[in-house]
Design a binder for these strands. Structure first.
Lengths: 233, 233
DNA sequence: TGTACATCAGTGAACGCGCGTTCACTGATGTAC
DNA sequence: TGTACATCAGTGAACGCGCGTTCACTGATGTAC
């Protein structure tokens, strides 16, 4: 068995070269396998092929590693949302819908990041750089809401963008963490989380006075095969 | 130190009498202190004042204990929601609002239950009785949505109750788990989670065609002191 | 270009600790007669 | 009413294990001259 380790070492030499990165990747792997609770410092070291003392050169303790992951998660999240938003092209509404889908996509494809960011118990506001990363991600949603609010038809009271952003965020997070997660705790749903969220946001926007076509969202409900979804008789 | 333990034993005799209950309480305590990850079987035994082998008479392992807590959580959740709903008295809309507040109240006052139910990684659908308890709780929201849907004014297409229920649930869970939690991971908000959720639901219902007074929800936004909330200029 | 030296990343052995789990046991309780 | 016995809940000692953390160390890298 031990030749494996030796071989690894032979390949890479005494110095790893990129251990910090490797530890983050290893931890991510472990989190996505066993949840944020089920990874240990020693585990990560083992997976990266170094001795259990090596990680201490890069992280003070397990919590610091976890916080680093959450931070990187927020950065990647921001980048995904930014790309989806694409500064509101080609039009605000469809870009907005793309952001919603990107949100769910991230939660499903990166459950390890998502749970480190939102469910690991890392208190975001205790770490300034983590806090800043989190706020940069939220800022995308907020900017999109701002643009949407500016689109308010004449005669309609312009909704506060911050409120809209918080509403949209809570809808997205709610759907993602109940029905759209990438792990075993995902709850079954008689439709795709994407459709559920899209209908939810459209109805909400109509409630704010936006002229949303009623058929678009009705279609989302009707197209599905019958089931607990409860097609109206 | 050991007299403490002896004294405890002297008080209660050789048999504990209600150990299963005591273990559940102990675990709840530990979870609310350190999160669902931070409690151990041995810890719970110690807190209940019994030997580390004693819990095995009542639970196969840690996971079974955790599942029991989640189950009890859903039962209590159901009871809280049922009481708040009060079969739609005095009128459907205000009872519905009460349910929303009760949802947030439960999440804040029972963070240990809430996280065992929704964030502990216990897969709900792997355990039939847990699944059933979860469904009974959701059924209250669904029943309320049903009554609300039946209230649709003439000429308005009646919204599918299941969809409404899922939308409301995701909003409530989103607000609760981002802003309304009872532990350190709670995010700061320029208003109360209750007001945020209430406005969100009202706007949503208006989007479905319900005649919701616009002032009610505007008030929620305006009454607050200025801040990041972004009072319109 | 070569050499000496400082710096740094990773080693591996060691430690104390608490956990999960098992075991034969013992004390208490309930019940049959 | 009393006694014998079965059942059951909790004991406490023991185990192997893996974790977090420390330590003096060593091998590699970079740099000053």
């Amino acid at each position: 068995m031990s030749w494996r380790k030796d071989e690894r070492r032979a390949e890479r030499g005494y110095h790893h070269g990129n251990l910090k990165e490797a530890l983050l990747q290893a931890a991510l792997n472990l989190i996505s396998q066993k949840g944020p609770a089920g990874f240990t410092f020693a585990d990560a070291a083992r997976m990266a092929g170094v001795s259990p003392a090596a990680p201490y050169r890069h992280f003070r303790d397990r919590d610091e590693l976890l916080a680093s992951i959450a931070q990187r998660g927020f950065e990647q999240f921001e980048s995904v949302l930014t790309q989806a938003w694409d500064d509101g092209r080609p039009d605000t509404i469809s870009a907005f819908e793309r952001v919603g889908k990107a949100y769910l996509g991230f939660a499903r494809e990166e459950p390890a990041f998502y749970s480190a960011m939102f469910e690991s118990g890392v208190p975001v506001d205790s770490n300034p750089t983590l806090m800043a990363a989190s706020e940069r991600a939220f800022a995308i949603i907020r900017a999109a809401a701002e643009r949407l609010a500016a689109l308010a038809p004449p005669g309609m009271p312009r909704p506060p963008a911050m409120m809209m952003a918080l509403h949209i965020w809570s809808m997205s997070h709610g759907v993602a963490s109940l029905f759209g997660r990438g792990d075993a705790a995902r709850r079954k749903l008689p439709m795709s989380p994407e459709d559920l969220l899209e209908a939810e946001v459209l109805i909400y926007l109509r409630g704010l006075g936006f002229p949303i076509d009623r058929r678009a969202e009705a279609a989302a409900a009707e197209e599905k095969p019958a089931g607990p979804w409860g097609r109206p008789k």
